[in-house]
């Protein structure tokens, strides 16, 4: 097995007395899509924020590409990007201007051709010159995905990336992500509340509940171990019964 691109060991985040992430450990292999499931407040987004260096862990370590995030932040983040339904981009800039700024922040070369390519891949030609404030929520999601994928990361962190997209665009994006994974060996950490999408996209899933990992494995493994009929029922069981393990 090759060296993991992400190694998380005993990661913990406490905000005063509240423990958002409680001693979790996991790894991601190159080219792997890891689904992270869990009810609201389970610690998914906090974990992503820690992987991006936006929140400092209370305990534990994060290593990416064999380097410690705490000491090699700048080098690591050149190869990591993220997209989320909950983020935005400067409203008074056009889509193209926003992509140009991001491209320069990641020191990309051939910026115009990279922007052309991602705009074509995500069907954004019509909104290219549009002001970001005039985008619909679906278009905004596509923009944040475009900014993440344009930088050609080795690790992509996606927090509910398709939450506000229509089924057509969702399909398009899922196929672009799969294509990127195949062609560039991209590793993706993926959160979603759409169980079917999780089953379809993820090689492996970790279930978070109250900051702890309560189940881990392929979707099929998790379902069969739980005795439930599908992943959605597993989710409901964990969320409603507050299970700490399966």
């Amino acid at each position: 097995m090759s060296q993991p691109v992400v190694e998380v060991h005993n990661l913990t985040k406490r905000f005063d007395s509240f423990c958002a992430v409680d001693d979790i450990s996991f790894e991601m292999q190159p080219g792997e899509i890891l689904g992270v499931l869990g009810p609201n407040g389970a610690g998914k987004t906090t974990t992503i924020h820690m992987l991006l260096g936006l929140i400092t862990p209370t305990a534990g370590s994060i290593r990416m590409f064999g380097m410690d995030l705490a000491t090699h932040r700048e080098t690591i983040l050149r190869d990591v990007n993220f997209s989320s339904t909950y983020i935005s981009m400067p409203f008074s800039l056009t889509v193209e201007e926003n992509l140009k700024v991001i491209a320069r922040l990641y020191s990309l070369s051939n910026i115009p051709s990279k922007i052309d390519a991602i705009i074509e891949q995500l069907d954004m030609q019509e909104i290219r010159k549009k002001l970001t404030r005039k985008l619909s929520s679906g278009q905004m999601s596509r923009l944040t995905l475009a900014k993440a994928m344009m930088t050609e990361p080795k690790v992509l962190l996606l927090d509910e990336p398709t939450a506000s997209l229509d089924p057509d665009i969702t399909n398009k994006i899922k196929s672009v992500l799969k294509e990127y994974r195949e062609s560039k060996n991209l590793s993706i950490l993926y959160t979603s509340h759409n169980m079917r999408e999780m089953e379809e996209m993820s090689d492996r899933i970790i279930f978070l509940q109250r900051g702890k990992i309560v189940a881990e494995g392929t979707a099929q493994d998790i379902v069969s171990r739980s005795g439930e009929k599908d992943l959605e029922d597993v989710f409901l069981k964990i969320a409603r019964e507050g299970r700490e393990s399966l």
Binding site: L52, L54, L77, V80, F82, F91, S107
Partner: peptide
């Protein structure tokens, strides 16, 4: 205002 701090500080910008 633009909720852009995450985009900036999750990038290699120091």
């Amino acid at each position: 205002w633009a909720r852009n701090l995450m985009n900036l500080f999750a990038s290699p910008l120091t």
